[in-house]
Amino acid sequence: MGYQNRQPPEGINYVSNGWQKDFVLLVVGFFAGLALLIWLAMLALGWSARWIPFSWEQALSRPLQQTVEPDQRLRYLQGLADDLARAGNLKKPMTITVHHQDSDVVNAYASLGGHVFILEGLLDEVKTEQGLAFVLAHEIAHVHHRHPLKATIRQLGFGVMMGLVFGNTDIAQLAGAGGQIAMLNYSRDLEREADAWALAALQKHYGHVDGADALFQWLAEEKADEAPPQWLSSHPDVQARIERLRDISREQGYSLQGKVTPLPEWETASSEAAPPTDR
């Protein structure tokens, strides 16, 4: 009989090895393109922060406004912050409001609207005024350079972009995680910028920068093994920061020797009752 079935040729209804090629091309090409786009957008967003008036930041951060009566310690911190702000030439309409937080975590941070938070743990570990002043100046520098605002805008912009491009898919999560790591790179740049400003403010205020790296020295000694690898951290490596402070001091001719004063004793109920921070 004359009927027969012929074997159809391959590669018409599908591309042989098609998705393997797609994978390489799309994954590499697409993520490279996306990274470029996001990089440009982040630059533009960070740059646009300068057009946003400081009063908007203050309006946004109104809930942070303090209502408690400042005690001796807070008055000291606020006074030191004001001195440093003046020494560092904080941009004009900006003001610094210092807050004290009862937490034994060794940290300090700056938020929108010039609100700077000093945690109890930091006051316990940093024994000198210069050490504290550097941390304070570092946070003031964040305010001066509008870093909290830039970070907020970038996070918002990044979220919107991810949502627009990917919607609610796996790739959004993947790109999100990658983006967060890239974002940390910006964060480290901002930290370096703040370190330099803080060092200049210290030199201006005290006439030397001795004791400025007290917190970093403490971190390098106590927390060295806890630190994540630099590319996963919001802050540069501690040892590198110490060296960078020294380099800047040398370049700018800051005096590395000077009178270091211990932190004053203040009478507050909470500092007596503070738990030991020996961790």
Binding site: G18, D22, T169
Partner: peptide, 29 residues
Amino acid sequence: DYFKRFIATLRMLVGGRLNSYESLLDRAR
């Protein structure tokens, strides 16, 4: 599968043949 969907999701952003689904359906037919 997760992988074919991943490639297809990327492909849908730029357009063109959804190679990862095409070969799957060809095999199924």
